[in-house]
Every structure is written in structure tokens, then in C-alpha cells.
């Protein structure tokens, strides 16, 4: 089962991304692309001539994808949650290194913003993991999935993750790191052809990773977990369609003053109670 899920992860992620694009389009009263559009994009990109800035940069793109896949597989195999979060962080930082390794202004600006963003986002992920630990006494995903539902005791932690979600998925209001109107995709700009494919697909894996994290709040009850994931999915889409992009400094301020405090309060409550 876990092998199957892991192997199918990019395809699942692609479908999720396709559904998301379709729903966003409908929310903007457009018809939107077909659900398979992400795959069409993938094939079309693979067909293009790859323009490599330097081999290290292109390699970083591939490694970024692999690390994101590993992070996801750790979750699917029921491994340590902290390891999964570590690999997620690693994949993002590899992309940042790639962004800094080229001379393009947009790429560097994007890398800087991405760096600031993960400084604000990753603590929240870690705090979420800790809240799972407090609830179940283990960081093992397999244990979390057999323990009772944790959403009722850690509502605040769930809210914190919900606030951080647009940042993790690079959706407005917290998409300053990508910001295609300002820095044209940030770190992604210098990738092309097949190498952009990997970055593009890593985005889907990221998406799957984040919603699996939300799913974990359901614990042993898969229905609650699924409902939470779908709810989070819709909240993110609605937020994307009703807000403008905030500046990255405002984003960090908001994340620390709201999400971080909420997640911290959740931990404190978990320790006290």
C-alpha cells in the first residue's frame, strides 16, 4: 500500500493540482483547463529544448524533486514525522541554493524571499509535529494514524497550520516568494524544459505533503482526516481568490504574530492539560 502510494505520488499530486486549477477557474467564473492539464504541461515542457544555466543548477532542481518525494514517502511509510519535515525543509533549501547559484536578479530575489518565508513557515510545521507528539507520545506517523483523533484537543494547532497553508503552497496572500507579477516566479525562472518539469512536479508533491499533514489530524478516523483535508483545501482556495498578495515583511509579521502564537499556545495547552 505504502509502496503503491509512494510510486503513484506524482500522479496523485498532478490530479490534485488539476482539480485545484479547475476549481480556481470556476471560482473566477472561468471554464478552466481540463483536469489533466498539469500532465499536458509536463509533456509539453519535456519536449522543449532544455537551456541549462550550469549543470549544478539543473542538478539542484532534480534533487529538489527527489527530496520532496522522499519527504512524502516518509509520511506514506509511516516513518518519523520530524524526518519528513526535515526532508521537506531540505528540498526547499536545495531550491534556494539553486536560486542563489545563478546570476539572475529575479532568481536571487526569489531565493531571498523564499529563505525568509521558510524561516517563518518551518517553525510552525515543527510545532505541529510537537503537538502530535504531545497527543500520541510518538513522532511515528503510523502511531499517529492509530491514535484517536487529535483535532479536538489541538484546534489551535490546526488553525495555525491553516494560516500557514497558503505560504506552504505559494498561494495568495502569502505567495511573495513566487510573485509572478513582481519577480516572475522567483527561483523557478532560470529552469527550463525537462529541469523545470522536476520543479513543477515537486510543487505537486509539496501540495500532497501538506494535505497529508492536515490529514494526520484525523488520527485513526480516516473520515475526519479526509474531511479536514478537503476543508483545508477549500479554505486555501477561497483565501487565494479573495486576497491580494501581501509584502513578504507583512507576511512574516503575520505568520509570527498569528500562526506562531497559536501553535505555541496549542503546545502550552497540551503540556498543561
Amino acid at each position: 500500500m505504502s509502496w503503491l502510494l509512494t510510486l503513484l505520488a506524482p500522479i496523485l499530486g498532478g490530479f490534485l493540482y488539476g482539480i485545484e486549477r479547475k476549481l480556481t477557474a470556476r471560482m473566477q467564473s472561468r471554464k478552466g483547463p481540463p483536469i489533466l492539464q498539469p500532465f499536458f504541461d509536463l509533456f509539453k515542457l519535456a519536449d522543449k529544448r532544455p537551456m541549462v544555466v550550469h549543470s549544478y543548477h539543473a542538478f539542484m532542481g532534480i534533487i529538489h524533486f527527489v527530496a520532496a518525494w522522499v519527504a512524502l514517502s516518509v509520511l506514506f511509510f509511516g516513518g518519523d514525522l520530524l524526518v519528513a519535515i526535515f526532508f521537506h525543509l531540505l528540498s526547499t533549501s536545495l531550491l534556494i541554493v539553486a536560486g542563489y547559484s545563478v546570476k539572475s536578479t529575479y532568481s536571487r530575489l526569489g531565493a531571498t524571499r523564499e529563505l525568509i518565508a521558510i524561516a517563518a513557515l518551518e517553525p510552525i510545521l515543527i510545532l505541529t509535529a510537537i503537538s502530535f507528539y504531545l497527543h500520541t507520545g510518538s513522532f511515528e506517523v503510523s502511531k499517529i494514524l492509530t491514535a484517536p483523533t487529535s483535532i479536538f484537543t489541538s484546534v489551535l494547532g490546526f488553525l495555525a497550520l491553516l494560516i500557514a497553508l497558503p505560504g506552504l503552497l505559494k498561494k495568495s496572500p502569502f505567495d511573495a516568494a513566487e510573485a509572478h507579477q513582481e519577480i516572475v516566479g522567483g527561483v523557478e525562472i532560470e529552469f527550463s524544459g525537462f529541469f523545470y518539469d522536476t520543479v513543477y512536479a515537486a510543487k505537486w508533491l509539496d501540495m500532497l505533503f501538506v494535505f497529508t499533514l492536515v490529514f494526520l489530524f484525523g488520527g485513526s478516523s480516516f473520515v475526519v482526516g479526509g474531511a479536514l483535508a478537503v476543508f483545508a483545501f477549500f479554505v486555501v482556495l477561497l483565501a487565494d481568490n479573495s486576497t491580494a498578495r501581501v509584502r513578504y515583511c507583512d507576511m512574516v509579521r503575520l505568520l509570527y504574530s498569528l500562526a506562531f502564537v497559536l501553535a505555541g499556545a496549542n503546545i502550552i495547552l497540551g503540556v498543561v492539560l
Binding site: M27, Q28, S29, R30, A179, N241, A244, R245
Partner: peptide
């Protein structure tokens, strides 16, 4: 202006 502030949904709405 809305689109350049990163608010694509409003852009679509006004265009509609």
C-alpha cells in the same frame, strides 16, 4: 491594478 497586486480573482471579476 488588482491583478498586479496579486489578486487574480478580482481581475477576472472586473473583466467580466
Amino acid at each position: 491594478t488588482a491583478e498586479n497586486a496579486g489578486y487574480e480573482a478580482l481581475f477576472m471579476r472586473i473583466m467580466k
